[in-house]
Amino acid sequence: MTHPLHTPLLIGAGNRWRRDDGVGAWLVERLGVRLGTAVETRLLSGEGAGLIDAWQGHATVWLFDAAAPSGRPGRVTRIAAHAQPVPAELCHHSTHRFGVGEAIEMARVLGQLPERLELVAVEGLDFGEGEGLSEVLERAAEMQLDELEALLRGAV
């Protein structure tokens, strides 16, 4: 049995009841089914303090989040966040909140980043109320699943 701390942790950040903001949860749920006990999964709001707490003790963390719209819905950005800074605007949460970007940079300063933290951000289109991704985003996310599964199997 693999020690839990060495099991990759997949975190889906966002709100699944705000359409494309739920793309992180959408991906994590499907990857969790494909990879079974080889990974741990958690769905979180994206609140920074909760994120830092969630990844404590995990050597490898994959964090999936929606990125703010900039005219290219479905565009996927992958950042090896353990090795390079995250642009704050990529996963903007709120001016009054402590969000994903701030959490990663704060954890870096505090020495609380996992050895490997992969951030996968998918640019959203529709952040209105309701469940389900927009068509363009679901298609884009679906296209990522095989590659992400392969990458994660390599990490397991």
Binding site: E102, E105, M106, V109, L110, G111
Partner: peptide, 12 residues
């Protein structure tokens, strides 16, 4: 606060 945490990590 991120800049502050570099020198006041325990507080943060």
């Amino acid at each position: 606060s991120i800049a502050m945490a570099k020198e006041h990590g325990e507080l943060v």
